[in-house]
Amino acid sequence: MTTSGIVFNLQRFSLHDGPGIRTTVFLKGCPLNCAWCANPESQSPRPQLMTRDIKCCGCGACAKACPEGAVQLEVGKVRRILWEQCTHCFRCVAACLYGALAAVGQTMTVEAVLDIVKKDQVFYDQSGGGLTLSGGEPLTQPTFARELLKGAKATGLHTVMDTTGHAPPTVLESILPFVDLTLYDIKHLDPQRHRRATGVDNQLILQNLKRTANQTRTWLRIPLLHGYNDTPEHMEGLARLVKELNIEKISLLPYHEGGLSKCRQIGQTPLDFMAQSPSEAHLAHLMEIMTRHGVRAAIGA
């Protein structure tokens, strides 16, 4: 039996998702709904339509192909998608010769994914890289995720999983044996603040972090949002957690606004959240805190 799942991106030559040169496989679907999400197209578990208006020439081939009348044309202008009528059948995508419409998320088998990952073996050999499984949240497709990691290990690849940790402990436990290094995202240590910006509680996440840190090498990844989770107190708390759980490294990832335009491209309105990245000076201050605690820290990786 062939296991398959929904992949929304395969990124070769990834340099910041674990050691070495890697191929990052992004699985679709996420239980969190972070207001600042950099990849909003990753949240829904199903394939969905995404527009690239810069490439649209207004030829109307998409409108002709659409059975729902969900494409509106205006002479001399970029076509408009009536999102509430779109059923994501992707007939418009097939009709578009200009790459102005794309289907985000496609069903792929484990073998098909691994065939692509293995293409860069020579780069992994030189750099100590390998496969990184990311998302979305890879644990939302547990069987697919496990088979991918297992298959990768079987061919001798180094494996990294990038996770929010929001998954049933049994699912996590079934997958960790095939993971060499976990990149574990923490948004906030305070339960209320966590729930406010992500829609879920952080209790499960923090419990799973202990399990993970016990079983694999672990690096923490903190998306830094100014005024939300970049206070010195919060950093102190993270530093203590890193020491307590014997975590190798903490990566501070300053917010970038890449998600905003993508929201529009999938017909969504960005959530009302004043996301800002911390200043260089503030970042330096946060790095100092980590150094003071004897925690290995990096910005952006």
Partner: peptide, 9 residues
């Protein structure tokens, strides 16, 4: 023209 953005290219 390829550039590196935070965690991806």
């Amino acid at each position: 023209l390829l550039v590196r953005v935070a965690g991806y290219s």
